[in-house]
Amino acid sequence: MTAPSLQILVVQGTIREGRSSIHPARYVTDRFRENGHNTELFDMKDYEIPLFRNRRDAVSNPHPDIDAFGRKVEAADALVIVAPEYNHSIPGTLKNLLDHLYPEYEDTAFSYVTVSAGGFGGVRALSHLHDITLEFDAHPGPDLPVSNVRDAFDEDGSLIDETYEDRFEEFIQAVVDHVEQFVPSAVGTPEAGG
């Protein structure tokens, strides 16, 4: 049996200046790619995401950047949300982005990397992400809280806290295992002649 590569969409959850969460977002994207998966990082800073007025499926001519996000979500086997914790919750920009879609998320496997400057790793943001995922009729999955993110990654985005290397690898495998429960094609296909 050979497992095909998964289509994974990593969503960077903030556009804040000086954001530290971009480093784990890029790192986890690279690790998925190194493990053979088709992985794209959706960074809201590269798009013009309008304030939510109506869902993509409810309008005939959705905003092009919302339509692009919707198409990426529809094509993905899994979403990995990378988000800092702001005021005991997720960033407003992330909630705004997510609210533009709804049926596109159904039965999608979600996983999460939450970060904080302090020692709790964004666990309150994680709790809200679980609730949101369940409302989407999607499947909440593995999480990786990253505490003291400014000490874990340097200013160039290199992982400098070696204790996280194994944790990221375990997270990658846990995400793949989670996705396999919901994407039949991810379980593997017989090799030729097998």
Results as ranks from 00 to 15, higher is better:
residue 45 K to L: 12
residue 23 H to F: 15
residue 28 V to N: 03
residue 171 F to M: 10
residue 128 H to T: 10
residue 108 T to G: 04
residue 52 F to V: 03
residue 36 G to M: 10
residue 160 I to H: 06
residue 93 T to V: 15
residue 69 F to M: 05
residue 131 D to S: 12
residue 25 A to M: 04
residue 116 S to R: 10
residue 11 V to P: 01
residue 161 D to F: 06
residue 16 R to G: 05
residue 83 A to Q: 01
residue 106 E to C: 09
residue 149 V to E: 08
residue 148 N to A: 13
residue 85 E to R: 10
residue 139 H to F: 12
residue 42 F to P: 00
residue 74 E to V: 11
residue 72 K to P: 04
residue 64 P to S: 08
residue 65 D to K: 04
residue 80 V to P: 02
residue 105 Y to L: 01
residue 26 R to W: 03
residue 120 F to Y: 14
residue 50 P to K: 05
residue 153 F to L: 06
residue 146 V to Y: 03
residue 14 T to R: 05
residue 9 L to R: 04
residue 137 D to P: 04
residue 31 R to T: 10
residue 182 F to D: 08
residue 126 L to Q: 06
residue 101 L to A: 12
residue 162 E to V: 13
residue 18 G to Y: 02
residue 113 V to A: 09
residue 51 L to R: 00
residue 49 I to Q: 05
residue 51 L to H: 09
residue 80 V to I: 15
residue 61 N to W: 04
residue 31 R to I: 13
residue 179 V to W: 07
residue 139 H to V: 10
residue 192 A to F: 15
residue 104 E to I: 00
residue 68 A to N: 14
residue 181 Q to H: 14
residue 156 D to K: 11
residue 129 L to P: 05
residue 154 D to S: 12
residue 162 E to H: 11
residue 144 L to S: 06
residue 144 L to Q: 07
residue 154 D to G: 10
residue 120 F to I: 14
residue 30 D to T: 14
residue 173 Q to N: 14
residue 32 F to K: 05
residue 64 P to D: 06
residue 114 T to K: 06
residue 29 T to S: 05
residue 100 H to K: 07
residue 84 P to I: 12
residue 1 M to V: 09
residue 114 T to I: 10
residue 77 D to Y: 01
residue 55 R to M: 13
residue 92 G to V: 10
residue 184 P to K: 01
residue 103 P to L: 02
residue 126 L to A: 10
residue 2 T to V: 13
residue 45 K to A: 14
residue 29 T to Q: 11
residue 156 D to I: 04
residue 138 A to P: 10
residue 69 F to K: 03
residue 133 T to Q: 07
residue 79 L to H: 07
residue 70 G to V: 06
residue 99 D to A: 11
residue 194 G to K: 05
residue 38 N to E: 14
residue 28 V to E: 09
residue 152 A to N: 00
residue 121 G to H: 00
residue 163 T to A: 14
residue 137 D to Y: 12
residue 19 R to I: 09
residue 137 D to V: 03
residue 171 F to N: 04
residue 45 K to Y: 01
